[in-house]
């Protein structure tokens, strides 16, 4: 074997090891949670109310609460996010105003989540008097999610070749028709990816709902958007730190449920992406 080949071989082995190092912690975390939590998972755990100081029964209200919060976030963040991205990518000219707007979005993406929580407390819970509620929590999470959705969607829109817009215009299309029928469908995979990444974060965050939506113990489904709710990340925090003598099985089981929701959303994103990519023609 020549020297060059030997060096190449060595390079491949090294890169392989590095990727293994990257993957290992993820596999370890997932493996650990699955092994320790799987014993807790049964029909009752998924569908019953918590009992006996949350040490027994199930986590049904927390699961439903998290899904409600994600749904509420989606309803607000998706239209506003896509609308904002379309404005920035397709209509906005390069003015001082749009530069400030962009800067604001970039900075918003870097704000710590607990600050969103405090902001939500101030604006939605207290000032607008929504109280600690699904509504206030969803709005807070939506604001946290918006920068992710806007910037990924804007990028996806900009990646669509400009010629398509020109062709559409030359065929008598208005600017909006070109966006609606050509640009948006082409950008959809990227936009959906951004949406799901944003919602994933919303599903897993504790701090933004801490003051705005989460109930410590509320063994029922919220009856309206103006009621607080249990939610998986906060519930996990509570049973891990606030309740003495909690069986680890329940803690790991809760973590496993949250992880499953998040990872399956991720998987859906990947499937959608690859489905659209196969259909793309440029």
């Amino acid at each position: 074997m020549s020297n060059r080949h030997r060096i190449q071989r060595l390079g491949f082995i090294l890169l392989g090891l590095i990727s293994l190092i990257v993957v290992m912690p993820i596999l370890f975390v997932i493996g650990n949670i699955v092994v320790q939590g799987i014993g807790a998972i049964n029909w009752e755990f998924l569908t019953a109310m918590p009992r006996g100081g949350m040490k027994e029964g199930g986590i049904f209200p927390a699961i439903v609460g998290t899904l409600l919060l994600v749904l509420g976030t989606a309803v607000v963040a998706i239209p506003v996010g896509i609308g904002g991205a379309i404005y920035l990518a397709e209509y906005a000219r390069d003015t001082l105003w749009t530069r400030i707007l962009r800067l604001a979005i970039i900075n918003l993406a870097g704000v710590p989540s607990v600050v969103y929580g405090l902001f939500g407390l101030g604006l939605f819970v207290l000032f607008l008097q929504f109280g600690v509620s699904v509504l206030a929590g969803s709005l807070t999470l939506a604001i946290m999610t918006l920068p992710v959705i806007i910037s990924t969607a804007e990028e996806a829109l900009r990646a669509v070749p400009g010629e398509f817009r020109l062709v559409s215009a030359s065929l008598g299309g208005t600017r909006w028709q070109g966006i609606r029928y050509i640009v948006l469908p082409q950008a959809l995979p990227g936009i959906i990816t951004g949406i799901i990444l944003g919602l994933l974060r919303a599903a897993g965050e504790t701090a933004p709902i801490l003051f705005t939506a989460a109930a410590f113990y509320l063994p029922r489904i919220p009856r309206s958007l103006l009621e607080p709710t249990m939610a998986l990340p906060y519930h996990l925090y509570v049973i891990s730190t606030q309740v003495p003598g909690m069986p680890p099985r329940v803690q790991y089981g809760t973590a496993l449920v949250l992880l499953t929701i998040v990872l399956s959303m991720n998987a859906v994103a990947a499937i959608i992406r690859s489905y659209f990519r196969r259909r793309r023609e440029w």
């Binding site: 030359s170 065929l171 008598g172 299309g173």
Partner: peptide, 18 residues
């Protein structure tokens, strides 16, 4: 848009829409 329906255009490179 109506004007552009009366005046068609073909570009330098073939640009089929998706």
């Amino acid at each position: 848009p109506l004007l552009r329906r009366r005046v068609g255009m073909v570009f330098a490179l073939p640009l089929p829409l998706p």
